[in-house]
C-alpha cells in the first residue's frame, strides 16, 4: 500500500475512481466515433474549455485590470464596483442570450416559432443602460450619505475614500 502511494501519488481508490471516470468517457468516445459529426463534437468540447480559459477569462481579467488602473488614477476607488458590477451583469446577459441578441437562428428560428428573428440588440443595450443607471444612482446616494456623515461629526469610524 505504501509502495503504491509512493509511486502513484495518492491512495488506490483515487486511481479506481479516475479509471471509472475515464471508462465512461472512453466508452462514449468509442460509441460516438462512428458518427459523421464526432469530430465537431470533440472540437466543441475542447473548444469550450479553450474559449473560457484562454479567451473569456483573460479578456475579463484584463478589462478589470484596465478599469482598476483607470479608476486608481482618478482616486475614486469606491466607484470601482459601481462600474464593475453593471459591466459584469451586462456581459453576463450578452454571454447567455448572445444568439438572440445577434438575431442568429435564421430559418430554424422562423420554422420553429413562425416569427422572423428580430435582433434584440436594442433590448440588450437598453437593459444594460438601465443597470448602469441604477448603479450610478446608488453611487450618488452613497456619496451623498457619506458626505452627510462627514459633515455631521468627526467620529466617523471610516473616512471617505474619495
Amino acid at each position: 500500500m505504501t509502495d503504491f502511494r509512493r509511486h502513484y501519488g495518492a491512495a488506490p481508490w483515487h486511481l479506481l475512481l479516475l479509471l471509472g471516470c475515464f471508462a465512461v468517457t472512453g466508452w462514449i468516445a468509442l460509441r460516438l466515433a462512428g458518427e459523421a459529426t464526432a469530430g465537431r463534437m470533440l472540437l466543441w468540447f475542447v473548444g469550450a474549455v479553450i474559449a473560457h480559459d484562454l479567451f473569456l477569462f483573460p479578456l475579463y481579467a484584463l478589462v478589470d485590470r484596465a478599469l482598476r488602473a483607470a479608476m486608481a488614477g482618478t482616486g475614486r476607488r469606491s466607484a470601482l464596483n459601481h462600474v464593475r458590477v453593471p459591466a459584469l451583469a451586462s456581459g453576463l446577459l450578452l454571454l447567455v442570450y448572445l444568439p438572440s441578441i445577434l438575431g442568429l437562428g435564421g430559418d430554424t428560428y422562423t420554422a420553429a416559432t413562425g416569427l422572423t428573428p428580430q435582433p434584440l440588440l436594442a433590448r440588450w443595450l437598453v437593459a444594460s443602460a438601465a443597470i448602469f443607471a441604477v448603479s450610478a444612482v446608488l453611487y450618488a446616494l452613497r456619496r451623498g450619505a457619506t458626505r452627510k456623515v462627514i459633515f455631521s461629526g468627526p467620529d466617523t469610524p471610516r473616512g471617505p475614500r474619495t
Binding site: 458518427e35 459529426t37 465537431r40 463534437m41 466543441w44 468540447f45 475542447v46 469550450a48 474549455v49 474559449a51 473560457h52 480559459d53 447567455v96 442570450y97 448572445l98 444568439p99 438572440s100 442568429l104 437562428g105 430554424t108 428560428y109 420553429a112 416559432t113 428573428p117
Partner: peptide, 24 residues
Amino acid sequence: VGGILFEMATGLLNIQYAYLFGFD
C-alpha cells in the same frame, strides 16, 4: 470543465434556435 461548458453552450444555442454546432 469541458463537460459543463459543452452542456451549457449546446443547451443555450438549442433554446435560441442557433444550431451553429452542426451536430445532432
